[in-house]
Computed example of a mutant assay.
Amino acid sequence: MTVLDPILADVQKPTAQARGLPNAHYTDPAMFAEERDALFGAGWAGLAVAADVPEIGDALPITFLDIPLLLIRGRDNAVRVFQNICRHRGMILVEEPRKIEGAIRCPYHSWCYSTQGQLVATPHVGGPGFNSHKDVDRTTLGLIEVRSHIWRDVVWINLSGKAPDFEVAMADVITRWAEFDQPQHHGGADSRFTLAVNGNWKLAIENYCESYHLPWVHPGLNSYSRLEDHYNIEQDGMASGQGTLVYRQLRNETGASFPDFADLDAQWDAGAEYLSVYPNVMLGVHRDHSFAIILRPEGPGRTEEHVHLYYATPETDDTLRRKNAAQWKEVFEEDIFVVEGMQRGRRAPGFDGGRFSPAMDGPTHCFHRWAANRIAQHRQVG
């Protein structure tokens, strides 16, 4: 499609001639607000993982792009996302993670909702002692549900409600990893951690897309999974990343490793892949474990990375599992100074978005093209 903004047109040129998104897209609150609708709201974004609410009644309030949301596992065991507000006066319903034993009760006027979102009680709404009123139709005043879908345990949401079905929008990614469409089990408390990064969320995605930085930023990882062992992955319009031909399994003192996922192709015996699924989810798959990283932007210059590790069986060796989490945490922490350094660099007025290596930066440029297209479409519709 034709892009009216010449800066965005430069982003969409072939990789060898293109430049990246300009500084304002990383520093300007107005751009951050625009991206909320253009990059997050229009399509499917990652909010959390279903393992965040493992039991019936578990409720987790999440502020996502300044929107108060509530992740909850209902009495029917389904995981849903609602706006975390009462339909009466817009009061926040749940302030802290907790288990809902009965109904979700608004602390303001005690309107109550089921864990499936229905409005079930409106005390004194018709006057003292009268809990109903002919002009208050409870059936139309349930919690506002946010369209959601669960894939690879990630709870994906579509804020606009207008995106194609998830299976359609993400068809190529789902197909690529179809072999891994089997049970995976969250490793528990020692398989989740959160990293705070003083950088724009896009820089975290861009860094994760490519293997170019491995020799200098991850020398330990590069010692056995070398730069030359990696290949680029580009799935225009939805994801990009990298794969490796060399994956080294962790082993305990007896030589045992994690159990493998079932019936995998031989390519996974020594290989692994890592995808940034746009806009804000970073995924990794290996023969014996996987992970999901959900990015939650907290403004133009700050991002939280919520990391979760999964295994093929519900029971795994405690020591090995903790060692795996510690190893990945070390790798992901090594990236923080890069993201934060690029963020500070975006304050330099002469920087025009930078250039891309045609050989090494294709996945990163793929993400920039996607972002530029979405922003252009948003501006034309708006």
Rank of each mutant, 00 (worst) to 15 (best):
V173M: 05
W177D: 04
R152Y: 02
D172W: 01
T194Q: 14
I144E: 09
W177T: 14
W201N: 06
K202S: 06
D190G: 06
I144N: 15
H149M: 02
D165M: 13
K162M: 15
A196F: 14
D165N: 15
D190W: 09
L159S: 06
D181Q: 11
T194H: 10
K162I: 03
I157R: 00
I157Q: 02
K162A: 14
H149K: 15
R176W: 13
I150F: 10
V146E: 02
G188Q: 01
Q182I: 04
S191A: 11
N198C: 07
D181T: 05
I157Y: 03
G187H: 14
G161K: 00
S148Y: 06
S148R: 14
E145V: 08
P164T: 05
H185I: 11
A196D: 13
A196P: 05
D165H: 05
E145F: 03
D165T: 03
M170L: 04
P183A: 14
S148Q: 09
G199L: 11
I174Q: 14
S148T: 07
V168D: 13
N200K: 07
I144K: 07
S191H: 02
D190Q: 12
I174S: 11
N200G: 02
Q184C: 06
R176Q: 08
N198T: 00
M170G: 06
P183E: 08
V154T: 12
I144V: 15
R147W: 09
A196M: 14
W151V: 03
K162P: 02
F166H: 00
H149P: 01
E145P: 04
G142A: 05
H186E: 12
L195G: 04
V146C: 01
A178F: 06
G142T: 08
Q182L: 12
R192T: 07
A189I: 05
A189T: 10
V155M: 02
N200A: 04
N198R: 11
D190R: 13
F166W: 01
V168Q: 12
V173T: 14
F193S: 04
A178D: 07
W156H: 04
V197N: 01
G188C: 01
F180S: 00
N198A: 11
G188F: 00
I174R: 14
I144S: 13
V197A: 03
W156Y: 03
D165I: 03
A196Y: 12
V173S: 01
R147G: 06
L143D: 04
E179I: 00
F166Q: 00
H149R: 06
E179T: 00
I157P: 08
V154K: 05
A189N: 03
A196Q: 15
E145L: 05
A178I: 08
D181R: 10
V154A: 13
I174N: 07
A204T: 02
A169K: 00
W177K: 05
W201L: 04
W177Y: 15
L159Y: 07
N200V: 04
V173I: 12
A178Y: 01
Q182T: 08
I174W: 12
A171I: 03
G199P: 04
G199M: 10
V146G: 05
M170Q: 08
V168G: 05
